[in-house]
């Protein structure tokens, strides 16, 4: 009986001991992925910003607030279509950055399509990848870091300039009870295209291009990223845009189109931190809690199995008592 129990315990010990590395290094990389149907919105605000007034002599004015509403919607049908040729799990995010002035009027709206590997966040190049209707070929990451983010610089795609540049790891910090990696990217003054949707009806980017006026942009982009999930829990941008040269500015060399310190709205920060904390626990379950738990359980079961086996073989053990047969009775 002891031998049988020790064999069962041995099988269980090997089962749990094997499950430990399998979960961490085989299952986790395959199970951890961005869902194809994710929908997410985000509100960012730039208080006391400078904004160009197109209706009042193209003058830059101080405004109380500029609001940026950013939506990302996973396009499941498009991702399934691309997966057929890509041969891997793909996520297609249709995004919109909608910028609104203090009076609620549209300042700009830039749609984009971002296609990436659901597990690694590496960009996937397929038809439809675009920013503001223009085809692009992204390199690097955008919006989100990979699972198990490392303490190193990453390549980050800038949708305004449509270029990829390093975003630098600048240290580990704590943000509202979460350990985060702080990343920063500076995009120097760069000539960028006008948005297709202009704030004044009837004006198109082509018409502005004819005046010789160009649009320039610089930003300092900051992200506080939770490293297990790769999700930013907070983000900021010190963003400046200028219009330069041409006949549109009435002889002026340049005029500020937008300048502001863009920050996530407080309720969205709280929501994001809560969401990331919850997802972090799931990642920890697969990368730490379960693998270590199973390994310890495996060792304990193995020890118990060996103990039972040793007791079963111990020479000092009393021999099992023989059952006495009743003597036959003769008549």
């Amino acid at each position: 009986m002891r031998r049988k129990a020790s064999l069962i315990l041995l099988a269980l010990a090997v089962f749990f001991a094997a499950l430990s590395p399998l979960l961490r290094w085989y299952a986790f990389p395959r199970l951890a992925k961005i869902p194809a149907n994710q929908y997410q919105d985000m509100v960012l605000e730039a208080k006391d910003a400078t904004l160009l007034d197109y209706n009042d002599g193209m003058k830059a004015k101080k405004v109380s607030k500029v609001t940026i509403v950013q939506t990302l919607r996973g396009n499941v049908e498009a991702s399934e279509q691309i997966e057929k040729t890509a041969g891997k799990d793909v996520v297609v995010w249709d995004g919109l950055s909608y910028v609104q002035g203090p009076d609620g009027a549209m300042v700009s709206k830039i749609p984009e399509r971002y296609i990436f590997d659901a597990h690694t966040q590496e960009p996937v190049h397929a038809t439809g990848e675009s920013v503001d209707g223009d085809p692009v070929k992204r390199e690097g990451i955008e919006f989100k870091w990979p699972f198990l983010t490392e303490k190193r610089n990453y390549e980050y795609f800038d949708a305004q300039a449509r270029v990829t540049a390093p975003i630098h790891y600048k240290g580990t910090q704590h943000f509202r009870g979460v350990e985060v990696y702080y990343f920063e990217q500076t995009v120097p003054w760069t000539k960028v295209p006008f948005p297709k949707a202009m704030p004044v009806a009837g004006i198109t980017p082509e018409q502005i291009a004819k005046t010789g006026t160009t649009r320039w942009y610089t930003t300092v982009r900051r992200f506080w990223v939770e490293p297990l999930t790769g999700a930013p829990v907070y983000g900021e941008e010190i963003h400046k845009e200028e219009l330069r040269g041409g006949s549109l500015l009435g002889g002026r060399e340049k005029v500020t189109a937008f300048a502001g310190h863009v920050k996530m709205r407080e309720d969205y920060i709280e929501h994001t931190v809560d969401l990331v904390k919850s997802n972090r626990t799931l990642v920890l379950l697969l990368t730490s809690y379960l693998p270590w738990g199973f390994l310890i359980l495996g060792v304990l079961l193995l020890a118990l199995s060996l103990y039972l086996e040793a007791r079963g073989r111990h020479p000092g053990d009393p021999a099992p008592a023989e059952t006495s047969q009743p003597e036959p009775v003769t008549a």
């Binding site: 149907n37 919607r73 396009n75 499941v76 049908e77 991702s79 249709d94 995004g95």
Partner: peptide, 9 residues
């Protein structure tokens, strides 16, 4: 995989 969210941008 689920389905695309009906919510708008």
């Amino acid at each position: 995989t689920g389905t695309t969210s009906p919510k708008p941008l």
